[in-house]
Design a protein around this nucleic acid. Structure first.
Length: 706
DNA sequence: GAGCCTCGAGTTCG
DNA sequence: CTCGAGGCTC
């Protein structure tokens, strides 16, 4: 770019041509970034191209293109925002779709807390705003950081943009030293329409819906643009706080309001499921006149002490649930049914649809799940959609499940073309022709081609470089596909010899279309960086069936280092003996997973491929869980008898959080028995074995809770 | 053996 | 985000 003539020296003709080039380059970069989930050019290069474009447009305003990149909203790479690790994870909520789900929610909570049906439980109910969640961190009353949710653990720093939102105070009085406020950024209907009208006047891009407009506005690199967008904010929760805000959810919300935040005026207390449903109906009725989008009602246990007793499941709190409004539906034509082949060989049918707008976005593909779903049955053989099968050419109803994934919900038989044939699911892989087999009791049909099947091979490679696995910058799905097609990368090990083979010499990466000196260098560097890899990531990256991210990390924590692990897999290869038993003894590992693991390491092909790979790697050891300061870390605990101040489930969760293993029966391996009144045989056995026994109060003292 | 809960695998669009 | 299946508990 440095060699390019100064903007002032450009002729109109040159400028026109360069603007066209820039528009194309930037569009490609955007596609590479957004849809291939791997940027092809660096952020700096991207910014430079954009700056050049702006400079030329400035000089020749009349040459500005209708599709000018300077008007593209939300096109800036998100890499431009710094990553922020949330002090307290931002979780999502469990979903409820009907009245029964709400009753079950209440029942589950009562059971977990050990409460009877008659005990009073109070909930809050509030509209669920359809926007984007934001976490605001205040220290000594000053806004120091605003972060998007991201994946819940790590979000993006959008502080400068958040400061421009009127509803977000930059300073608050009388707050705890550390206070993280969580809430929703949204745009009102009126502001959204005004914005779109304004955009139209300037022939700028129209936003599909208020949510997208809010999201696009918040993620502007230039915060003056965010300032010009009418964003609003409702506070409804909190993350880290240096001192408790209140005793109840409702009081906490009122406190947030006192601190100067907008809180939703429709937040109400409910005494149980029936009142919650009344509130739901009320809010649903008000929906159209609220002036902003909501997609349901959120219920939370009001008592914060109970909230903390209930705690969290892996991704959602036990004490809250979102009751969603029914999804928007649309009818369209099913043009064709295509089959995709996944990493494990699973054949998944996809519906190709005549594009139709559903809930503000245009949908042209939808999942059809599996063979049975098309035939109108679920996995247990029960009828779905009244047993109506789905055929190519059918008129179908689609919706976006969870407002995201398009699904085919129904078929209109009266509009079925006369010549429509029942869909026959292929029994051979459409990619490699191998036989596709459906195991007894399985819902999916799988290609048996293994790595012979190009689809499986490439999907496995994509998995290998994915976010939770090797996560190599500049090597995303699209790149992997191309390298595979050209034979540059056939298996994971090839990634680590890529530079050796194509770093220099007659066929060089930097001479390839779409690559340059800089991007090639960046890629090689990114690969270099990943030669050191944590055990858990490596194991996950291998893509062994039934061994996902969680299981991989579990195994990494258990075995600690790679060599011990592979040695254990070898010893357990015949699915027998002490190592096999030890593997099965891991909480969370069952027979199916264990077999899958051991087989992967025992099969020559697969093992050779793994060994070829690890030769290029330094596998980082995983520290066994330290659970610093925990009095029970690594101990095996048994709870017995009646627990009066907590339930079994609670006690177990608590113990496990502290690094203990909770077992059901007393044995020589037991370190501690917590016995309530009525402890029978287990108490006796503990005495016989000389295992330490404490009562419930002793336990609560030990773990520092009362 | 039933009934959770959690995880894995597959999915769409911006 | 959803579905199906694995794993654990009762």
């Amino acid at each position: 770019m440095a060699q390019k003539p100064e903007v002032d020296d450009l002729s109109e003709e040159q400028a026109t041509k360069e603007l066209a080039d820039l528009a194309q380059q930037l569009a490609e970069a955007n596609t590479a970034y957004h849809t291939e989930d791997a940027p092809r050019i660096s952020d700096a290069e991207y910014d430079a191209l954009k700056a050049r474009n702006a400079a030329i447009e400035d000089r020749f305003p009349h040459l500005k293109r209708a599709d000018s990149p300077s008007d593209q909203v939300g096109a800036a790479p998100s890499e431009a925002f710094a990553k922020v690790t949330h002090a307290v994870r931002m979780l999502s909520l469990g979903n409820a779709f009907d009245d029964a789900d709400i009753t079950e929610f209440d029942t589950r909570i009562r059971r977990y807390l050990g409460l009877g049906d008659d005990a009073k439980l109070t909930y809050t109910a509030e509209p669920k705003i359809d926007g984007l969640s934001l976490s605001l961190r205040y220290e000594s009353g000053k806004l120091v950081q605003a972060a998007t949710r991201g994946d819940g653990a790590v979000g993006e720093n959008v502080t400068a943009n958040a400061r421009t939102i009127d509803d977000i105070p930059v300073k608050i009085d009388g707050a705890p030293d550390v206070l993280e406020i969580r809430g929703e950024v949204y745009m009102s209907h009126a502001d959204f329409e005004a914005l779109n009208a304004r955009q139209a006047e300037r022939s700028d891009k129209q936003f599909a819906n208020p949510r997208n407009a809010a999201a696009g506005s918040l993620r502007q690199l230039d915060s003056s643009i965010t300032r010009s967008r009418p964003l609003r904010f409702f506070a409804y929760a909190w993350g880290e706080v240096s001192e408790p805000l209140a005793d109840t959810q409702m009081a906490a919300i009122n406190r947030l309001s006192d601190l100067g935040f907008q809180t939703n005026p429709l937040t109400e207390l409910c005494d149980g499921p029936s009142e919650m449903l009344v509130q739901y109906a009320k809010i649903e009725q008000l929906r159209a006149e609220l002036g902003y989008d909501i997609d349901g009602v959120v219920y939370k246990i009001d008592d914060l002490a109970l909230q903390s007793r209930l705690g969290f499941r892996s991704t959602t709190p036990r004490w809250a649930i979102a009751h969603k409004f029914p999804a928007e539906l649309a009818w369209t034509r099913l043009e064709a049914i295509d089959i995709q082949v996944g990493r494990t060989g699973a054949l998944s049918p996809v519906a190709r649809l005549t594009p139709v707008t559903v809930g503000g976005v245009v949908v042209s593909n939808a999942t059809l799940h599996n063979e049975d779903y098309i035939a109108g049955r679920d996995s247990k053989g029960n009828e779905i959609r009244g047993g109506k099968d789905i055929r190519e050419g059918d008129w179908v109803q689609v919706y976006r499940a969870g407002d995201v994934i398009p699904k085919v919900a129904d078929v209109d038989l009266s509009k079925r073309p006369d010549d429509a044939q029942p869909y026959t699911f292929p029994e051979t892989c459409p990619e490699c022709g191998s036989e596709a087999i459906r195991e007894e009791g399985d819902a999916v049909r799988r290609c048996t081609g293994g790595l012979i099947c190009p689809a499986q091979a490439v999907e496995k490679l994509k998995h290998f470089v994915s976010r939770a696995a090797f996560d190599i910058e500049g090597l995303g799905a699209k790149q992997v596909e191309q390298f595979y097609r050209d034979g540059w990368i056939k298996e994971p090990a090839d990634i680590f010899t890529l530079e050796e083979r194509y770093g220099s010499g007659p066929r060089q990466l930097k001479n390839r279309e779409g690559w340059g000196e800089k991007s090639a260098k960046n890629l090689f560097e990114a690969i270099e960086e990943k030669r050191n890899i944590p055990f858990g990531r490596l194991l996950f990256a291998l893509g062994i069936r039934h061994v996902g991210e969680q299981a991989s990390n579990l195994l990494a924590r258990f075995y600690g280092n790679w060599d011990d692990f592979t040695a254990a897999m070898d010893s357990a290869a015949d699915c027998d003996g002490p190592e096999w038993e030890r593997l099965l003894g891991i909480d969370g590992v069952g027979e199916v997973m264990a077999r899958s693991l051991v087989t992967a390491f025992a099969q020559d092909n697969e093992r050779d491929s793994i060994d070829r790979l690890t030769r290029h790697l330094t596998v980082e050891e995983t520290a066994r869980p330290a659970t610093e300061g925990s009095p029970v870390a690594g101990k095996t605990i048994v709870f017995t008898g009646t627990l009066e101040k907590m339930t079994r489930a609670e006690a177990k969760a608590r113990a496990e959080a502290l690094g203990a293993k909770v077992s059901g029966s007393v044995s020589a391996k037991t370190d501690l028995v917590v016995a309530g009144p009525g402890a029978g045989s287990k108490g006796k056995k503990a005495e016989e074995l000389g295992v330490e026994i404490i009562d419930e109060d002793g336990w609560l003292d030990l773990v520092g809770a009362s």
